[in-house]
């Protein structure tokens, strides 16, 4: 066993990369759940985004177009969920699970011709002298633009929910759709927008896996990332800051356990592989277990069907 091969700067830098797909998906799901919609199809939307983004990038040669395509694909699948749950008033849990299965299936179908293909590389953002700074340069200023986009999105969603009028209306719809309807807000339209945003974010997260992190296409390559994103939203008490923390914890642990595996730590590989899941959930549970507001942060209408009958 040789722990000296693990360099802190590289470890932390790759932590940010590993966390990005989960962060993107979780932030999207946060917005969706804040509007009162429980979409369990994150995994399905992620993998659909992964293949849509991969295919678009390969066909056009541009990773940016790939990411746009991933967002569109994820959002499209999410809108299917929206039609089922918001217009046809289907059960959200069942529809979400179906969406995951559907997404896994359709992505495998689309992906048939793309196995073993190499995608165009997503370039690192050139931050000039910043990336020359010792340690910090490697850690913070040598990533591709999606990593920064994920962080900016987290900040943006936090500002949106906390300070903007539209964010207040979104939270209100998730808190009591009947009251929001009585005040004249368009509950279904607002939820559709939130669902589509959640789908687009999950799609971006998926594309980051297939275009940057792996980078290639294999069936079922999201491998539970969507589920961990869902869990992070809940155990992060629906707060962007905690979701960021949860995603980094998970990403960090993933990278660390890979390094530990490489360093031949005398622990079964299976235990190391499951450690990110266990640790992330344990930490977030402890954080959200406290009494008071944190434990009651769930939007009151989460998963409830709204019908403007009264």
């Amino acid at each position: 066993m040789d722990l000296s091969v693990i360099s802190p700067a590289v470890l932390l830098a790759s932590l940010m990369v590993a966390a990005t797909p989960i962060l993107l998906a979780a932030i999207g799901e946060l917005v969706c759940e804040k509007s009162g919609v429980l979409n369990l199809g994150v995994e399905g939307m992620m993998i659909t985004g992964a293949i849509c983004g991969f295919a678009m990038a390969v066909e056009t040669g541009s990773p940016l177009v790939g990411f746009l395509g991933a967002a569109a694909g994820g959002a499209l699948l999410a809108l299917l969920f929206g039609v089922l749950t918001q217009l046809l008033l289907a059960n959200q849990v069942a529809s979400g699970l179906a969406l995951t299965l559907f997404g896994i299936g359709i992505s495998a179908l689309i992906g048939q011709g793309y196995r073993g293909v190499k995608p165009p590389p997503t370039t690192r953002l050139d931050l000039g002298p910043l990336s020359e700074i010792p340690f910090l340069g490697r850690l913070l200023f040598s990533h591709d633009w999606v990593v920064y986009f994920g962080l900016a999105l987290t900040l943006g969603v936090w500002l949106f929910l906390r300070y903007s009028r539209a964010g207040l209306v979104l939270r209100a719809v998730g808190e009591s759709h009947d009251a929001a309807h009585a005040l004249g807000y368009k509950v279904v339209a607002i939820r559709f927008a939130a669902i589509a945003f959640g789908g687009a974010c999950a799609g971006l997260g998926g594309a980051y896996l297939s275009l940057v992190r792996v980078p290639q296409w294999t069936d079922g390559m999201t491998a539970g990332a969507g589920w961990i994103a869902l869990a992070i939203v809940v155990f992060g008490s629906w707060r962007p800051g905690r979701i960021l923390l949860g995603a980094y914890l998970f990403g960090g642990m993933t990278v660390l356990q890979l390094n530990l595996q490489a360093a031949q730590l005398p622990v079964p590989v299976e235990v190391l592989s499951m450690s990110p899941f266990v640790l992330t959930i344990v930490v977030l549970v402890i954080m959200s277990a406290g009494r008071g507001r944190a434990s009651t942060a769930a939007p009151a209408m989460l998963g409830r069907v709204f019908h403007a009958s009264s």
Partner: peptide, 18 residues
Amino acid sequence: FQHFSLFDALDVAENVAL
């Protein structure tokens, strides 16, 4: 309203603003 059209988890100012 007869049945209050208020949002429990939001504060007074936010409820008024809505």
